[in-house]
Amino acid sequence: MSWPERFLAELVRLGVQQARARRLTEDTAAQAAEQACDPGGLFGPPHLYARHLVAELAAPVAAPPRFTQAGPVLLNLTGVGKRYRRRTVFDNVDLTVRGGEVAAVVGANGCGKSTLLRICAGLTRPDAGQVRRTRRVGYVPQDGGTAGWLTADEHFTLFGAAAGVVPRRARSTGAHLAARLAWRPEPAQRAQQLSGGTRQKLNLVLGELHAPDLLLLDEPYQGFDQGTYVDFWRQVHSWRDAGRAVVVVTHLLHDLSTVDHVLDLGEQR
């Protein structure tokens, strides 16, 4: 039996429903493919990883070390649903995130993670339910969101101008935030010349440039190397410690141990 088959069998044996176990297996295989690794090399023996995963998904998430208490509610979803024509993408989604908390949105491909994040941002309207959120929000899309022919500095100027920040201050803030992700933008390098990971760093900086209270991140680490990935989570925790709320769409299941809430859209269906 191959690694995914053994992993799937172990999940089923541990009581995970067949359909859900299959989705988890697909997600795990996709993660391994993204890292260009064989699943055994990345996750270890399938039965151990299956047990670890079931424990992660079932148990309440352990509170990571923190320096601040949870603050006021910055995002509240009650009974939120979205349909595209006759297809229900998700229904009855509830989520409350306070300042100083990190929430992860997980689920299989196509279950509406990005749509939910766009609803939180206000870019897409829900068909049902109620959304309440703080006014200052930063949104980092999964891809796109930058202008290919502009440099990083020009992006800082543009996004700063939208938020009413003068160009010089926007550029210095952008450079400072980039340095926290171990990135120093080249003055003449255009966004289309950046590697995928570096473009995602630019995306992250642009989402944070106007100091929002709530950050909505849609799989922001795509293309990150291991060091940048660690820097990213350090950055997420520093936002949390500064009293901000962060919602991260992820399919990397090992991220879940470091967040305060997990919203599994796969379970909503």
């Binding site: 941002a121 949104y139 796109g144 969101g145 290919g148 022919w149 996004f159 939208a162 938020a163 009413g164």
Partner: peptide, 13 residues
């Protein structure tokens, strides 16, 4: 070309 950037600029204000 501005389709990807504009929604984010709107969110920024």
């Amino acid at each position: 070309a501005s389709r990807g950037v504009d929604p984010r600029l709107r969110l920024n204000g």
